[in-house]
Design a protein around this nucleic acid. Structure first.
Length: 454
RNA sequence: GUGGAUGUAGCUCAGCUGGUUAGAGCGCUGGAUUGUGGUUCCAGAGGUCGUGGGUUCAAGCCCCAUCUUCCACCCCA
């Protein structure tokens, strides 16, 4: 007996119903991106490992899917290296390509390669799958789609504001209540500086990022464990206890980190952004969250994270400013800012809340019942007519029992059924049945198009 | 990568301290209704219990391995 086929861990098939709903998300995201003047690009599923490695921190490198070289991939390896069982060293010999881990780094690579043809500031969007060799769990897949929007080649904080508006716009269209959390890496750097641990910024931010999840005691524990001095941790406490409105928080933190010029720069940026936002009507809640860190280490300024207010699933959108991502590829002095919508998580949230529009399931609006060859010939021109009029329609391909055909139409959610048998043909009419109400009316062929056009 | 759960019919799940022929609901197929679905009634099909080993007179149940899914950690969309 053949073994049951399966797909790799953390990957999924999408049924027609799921695709209809996924496309609903992609379409709205796309519509908003275009509304804000962004242009679409695509990049290959695989990149050279040299492009990918070292861009996502230590953890990121581990999560890269690597592609075995084609052909005799062992030919470049000598027996010594083979028996050394040093997998990371061997990897570089037998694999030189990897699946993309996000869309931002390939985008930076694209910008550098095409810098002469790009009109800056470049507003691009990109909707493609990415792959991470993570262990799957709720809302975490090994293959998932990101919908990225980035503006590259401009320092203006107006771009941050644009992205926030896009986020608000998308979630308003999708009908999701979200909170947009904002922070700034420069403020985090300022904090590290202020407590005399500038070197440990990564450890510190990673630890305080967990504040609302594990509590202040555990955070302090972790900091001690990471080797942060007791004195520094003491200095950090007031920062962890910040509360109040966004402006109150800014004012408080400003006092704490006033000796750090980087920190003050971050404060200034955040203030500017909030100032812009004050004049704009947003539906989403905007929260300055000084514990927001985000793992990707190429962020240098603003960082964003969006969480659903109704479903606990981690962030559904995230991003930030990166001042020199293209520098690694040989084009320095180009700053960009972008965000990424996690389509799969948005899907999970919307499924759980059951807020997909009912008609997201695309199928024919009309089905012609098949009564036999003669009747088929009568129906075919009518079918073309409907399609010309933009009404999606189909004819049942076999003259099966009527019950079977009706069940088919019913299960596919087809709203109307056209019955054109011997008696209808004689009169030059058709019977149009509404599958929801069960009503049926005998109408002429011209009336058919009008009745369905609505 | 670390730790913990899970897998029984197409789906959701029962299945006692190991003991004959493994059950239910929904779905599916056929019929009541040969030109009318979604409601009702009747009948029927469908499982080598994730996979591979082991213990036992006897394994869905116990042990080991492996895979899947899920949960926590790490990290992240």
């Amino acid at each position: 007996m053949a073994q049951k086929p399966s797909i790799p861990k953390g990957t999924r098939d999408f049924s027609p119903n799921e695709m209809a709903r996924r496309n609903y998300i992609f379409d709205t995201v796309k519509r908003v991106f275009q509304l804000y003047g962004f242009q679409q690009i695509e990049t290959p599923a695989m990149e050279n490992l040299s492009t990918l490695m070292g861009k996502y921190g230590e953890e990121g490198d581990k999560l890269l899917f690597k592609i075995l070289n084609s052909g005799d991939y062992l030919s470049a390896v000598n027996s010594e290296e083979l028996t050394a069982s040093n997998s990371s060293k061997l990897t570089t010999k037998i694999s030189e390509k990897g699946l993309r881990y996000d869309l931002t780094v390939p985008f930076a690579r694209y910008v550098v390669q095409n810098q002469n043809d790009i009109v800056f500031p470049f507003r691009r969007y990109q909707i493609q799958p990415v792959w991470r060799a993570d262990r799957p769990q709720k809302g975490r897949y090994r293959e998932f789609y990101q919908c990225d929007v980035d503006i590259i080649g401009s320092d203006s904080l107006l771009n941050e504001v644009e992205l926030i508006q896009i986020v608000d716009h998308v979630y308003r269209f999708l009908g999701l209540k979200v909170v947009i959390k904002i922070n700034n890496r420069k403020i985090l750097a300022g904090i590290a500086e202020a407590i005399g641990e500038a070197e440990r910024i990564v450890d510190i931010t990673v630890a305080i990022d967990k504040l609302d999840k594990i509590g202040i005691d555990k955070v302090n524990e972790e900091l001690i464990h990471k080797g942060v001095t007791h004195e520094a941790i003491l200095k950090l406490q007031p920062i962890l206890h910040l509360n109040g409105s966004n402006t109150e928080k800014i004012n408080q933190i400003e006092r704490v980190i006033s000796m750090s010029s980087t920190g003050l720069q971050g404060i200034k940026e955040v203030r500017t952004i909030f100032n812009y936002l004050s004049g704009i009507n947003l539906e989403s809640e905007i929260e300055l969250d000084l514990t927001l860190a985000r793992g990707l280490n190429y962020y240098t300024g603003a960082i964003f994270e969006v969480k659903s207010k109704d479903v606990e699933i981690g962030s559904i959108t995230g991003g930030g400013r990166y001042d020199d991502l293209t520098g690694i590829f040989g084009l320095s002095g180009v700053s960009g800012v972008g965000i990424s919508f996690g389509a799969d998580r948005i899907y999970d949230v919307m499924s759980q809340l059951d807020i997909f529009p009912k008609d997201a399931m695309a199928s024919s609006k009309v089905m012609f019942v098949n009564f036999g060859e003669k009747e088929e010939c009568y129906c075919l021109p009518l079918l073309s007519c409907l399609r010309q009029a933009g009404i999606s329609s189909e004819i049942y391909p076999d003259s099966d029992k009527m019950k079977k055909q009706m069940v088919y139409a019913n299960r596919k959610g087809i709203k109307f059924v056209v019955l054109a048998g011997e008696s209808e043909i004689e009169k030059g009419m058709v019977n149009l049945k509404n599958m929801e109400t069960g009503e049926q009316q005998l109408i002429s062929v011209t009336e058919l198009v009008i009745a369905l056009k609505v």
